[in-house]
Simulated assay, not measured.
Amino acid sequence: MVSREYKRDSSLREKFQLLRSITNSNAESETSIIVDASKYIKKLKQKVEQINNETTSEKYFCDPTGHMVTVETLEKGFMIKVMSGKNEAGLLVCVLEAFEDLGLEVVEARVSCMDSFSLHAIGSSNNFNLPE
């Protein structure tokens, strides 16, 4: 019976040491190790939420002429969609000039200019900022 308790205690000590090392805890008592682990888990949850917010954030804009613009943050850039109910002469040039003014480098783009106007562009830039 003593050896069973010794094995259980030894196993528990090993698990606490593992938990302590994973969470970078300097605590000595088991209670403090658990508190540090709880704080560590909360920080990880916050980081995951922050990453999720960064990678899924979308902003919508509608200018006075009725063009709908969607900007979605991607892992390494942006997906920008511009849509308009009608195709206007020079609209594509105007949009591309706006990208250039914003410091956005277009990596890939798909455009449709038949009856309506639709542009889907993937861009990258370190200094691109979304308007508020």
Rank of each mutant, 00 (worst) to 15 (best):
97 E>T: 07
45 K>R: 14
130 L>Q: 04
93 V>F: 14
15 K>Y: 02
111 V>C: 04
129 N>R: 15
31 T>R: 15
32 S>Y: 12
9 D>I: 05
14 E>N: 09
61 F>D: 03
104 L>R: 02
46 Q>N: 12
55 T>A: 12
123 G>A: 08
97 E>V: 08
91 L>C: 07
109 A>T: 06
91 L>F: 08
129 N>K: 15
122 I>N: 10
2 V>E: 14
28 E>Y: 11
51 I>G: 01
3 S>A: 09
10 S>R: 14
56 T>N: 15
103 G>F: 12
67 H>L: 15
121 A>Y: 06
1 M>N: 15
14 E>K: 09
60 Y>T: 07
124 S>C: 13
42 K>Y: 13
82 V>W: 03
95 V>T: 04
109 A>D: 02
6 Y>I: 06
7 K>M: 12
55 T>V: 12
86 K>A: 12
50 Q>K: 15
49 E>D: 09
21 S>N: 11
35 V>N: 03
33 I>Q: 01
72 E>D: 00
52 N>Q: 13
95 V>P: 07
108 E>C: 05
106 V>M: 10
113 C>V: 05
111 V>T: 10
25 S>T: 01
91 L>I: 12
45 K>V: 06
45 K>Q: 09
36 D>M: 00
32 S>R: 14
66 G>Q: 09
84 S>A: 15
90 G>F: 05
22 I>Q: 01
41 I>F: 02
58 E>N: 07
35 V>A: 04
85 G>M: 05
71 V>R: 01
69 V>I: 11
53 N>R: 10
62 C>H: 02
83 M>W: 06
61 F>I: 02
72 E>Q: 07
115 D>E: 12
127 N>I: 09
126 N>S: 15
23 T>A: 09
9 D>V: 08
96 L>A: 05
92 L>A: 08
120 H>D: 11
91 L>T: 12
71 V>D: 00
7 K>D: 11
50 Q>V: 12
26 N>L: 03
95 V>H: 02
31 T>Q: 11
37 A>I: 03
52 N>F: 10
87 N>A: 09
107 V>Y: 11
27 A>K: 01
96 L>H: 06
74 L>D: 09
8 R>P: 00
23 T>G: 00
13 R>S: 03
3 S>N: 06
2 V>P: 07
119 L>I: 05
78 F>V: 05
127 N>R: 12
46 Q>C: 13
121 A>E: 03
51 I>E: 10
95 V>G: 04
76 K>Q: 05
12 L>C: 00
84 S>F: 01
60 Y>A: 04
8 R>W: 03
6 Y>K: 15
116 S>P: 01
8 R>C: 03
19 L>S: 01
